[in-house]
Write a protein that binds this DNA or RNA. Structure first.
Lengths: 225, 225
DNA sequence: AGAGATACGCTACGACCTGTAGCGAAAGAG
DNA sequence: CTCTTTCGCTACAGGTCGTAGCGTATCTCT
């Protein structure tokens, strides 16, 4: 793809300047990220070119490469910021909190540029372990933190018993998070249908109670491992 | 990317010949698809080039373009067949059936070429409604059928009460399927960690019973819509 | 068997993208 | 006011996509 070797993934959103001469233009930073998101929505990952983004941002192509070592990194940063304002609302009940955060997530994933960008990132991440790690740090982990918060809130309210074992609690959070995030992602990104309030409501019900119509006998015994 | 306009997604695996002169080589067909899968596993979507596939298949590049209009179509066909042998095992309990099908799915998704291909397809599908429809028909719908089968089996066994309403049952199957497929996809494709038997076991437990430690009061009341 | 039709491999090609290099000019920091 | 760094510009090498044109191979049909 490139005639030269690939640089390691940059640690931050952009290479850190060192405060001596002319500082980097923050305006250009924003213009580039905005242009990236816009181009992503229009053209998708495959259609997005660095030249295009540069032109659209009113910036020279070389300026892009001064900040991000390649397309991947640029797109991660352009997209990750979208996830920054997910938050737990503390609506007074576990159920309401779940519905709220799922709705926020669904809202985010309903935007075409988020869809294109996320899937493209995931796809690239399947080949590039460093990129995948970066996705986890910038996107997945913050979301998982929401599950922890929600869980803690529910415990304060007495809806949920306190954790006995730290490790077990961690694993449980992982699974719950996989389930919540995965269901929404699957519906919106793979199937391509919106997560309506009804869908969210029913999904939350599924998460909080056993399968409707399930015999007690079938639900009860989780056979020993 | 290309100097010419893109053709619409081809209706079949390859353009249909018309039986007059020399027929297309079926050997070449298979060699190309095999080479595509192999290259996908090694290089991923981004690294896969038509020239590479051609060389590997022992075929001229032009031969590829005589059959598939572009990379997308070639990869869809190369990958879709992988999903053909998922099936419900009828192990005697709903729980065992779920674990079995999740394990099959996880096994499939653990193969690198499936990961790369699937994610790349999903990504392209987010921009191309026709491609997305094709993914649904060839990949998603057959999987959803498994959920229907498992549900029917559980009802026969008396583990699950019979459906009262056809439409409601349909919606419920959708949600359950979104949840199962989504969780596995999220864990393996996004996070990039394997779905161990332990994980599958715990996930199934989560699906079949309420959240561990949940107060009865918090679990019970699904507020009216 | 012969004629016709089609697929095949090969080479070359135009258009495009990536990421780098080198330059003079501009703009802040100290 | 000087020094450092960024900026925009142009040019470039390496690489991919998908097409065109050619002579040859291979199959079908008469």
């Amino acid at each position: 793809m490139a005639p030269t070797t690939r640089q390691p993934v940059s640690p931050g959103p952009a290479a850190p300047p060192r405060g001596k001469g002319r500082p980097r233009s923050a305006t250009a930073d924003r213009a580039i990220l905005d242009a990236t998101r816009a181009a992503l929505a229009e053209l998708g990952w495959g259609g997005l070119t660095m030249g295009h983004v540069a032109t659209r941002a009113g910036v020279a192509k070389t300026t892009l490469y001064r900040r991000w070592p390649s397309k991947n990194e640029l797109v991660v940063d352009a997209v990750a910021s979208l996830f920054d304002d997910l938050e737990i609302a503390d609506l007074g009940s576990l159920r309401a909190d779940i519905e709220s955060v799922v709705a926020q997530f669904a809202d985010l994933l309903s935007r075409p540029e988020t869809q294109a960008a996320l899937l493209a990132l995931f796809a690239e991440g399947s080949r590039d372990p460093l990129l995948r790690r970066r996705i986890r740090e910038r996107i997945v982990d913050p979301q998982k933190h929401l599950v922890q918060q929600g869980r803690a809130l529910a415990q304060e309210r007495g809806e949920l018993s306190l954790d006995q074992d730290e490790a077990t609690a961690c694993e449980e959070i992982d699974i719950i998070f996989d389930t919540i995030a995965g269901a929404v992602e699957h519906r919106m990104l793979v199937i391509g249908e919106p997560a309506t309030p009804q869908w969210i409501h029913r999904f939350t019900t599924l998460l909080l109670s056993p399968l409707p119509g399930l015999t007690a006998a079938a639900a009860e015994p989780p056979p020993a491992e």
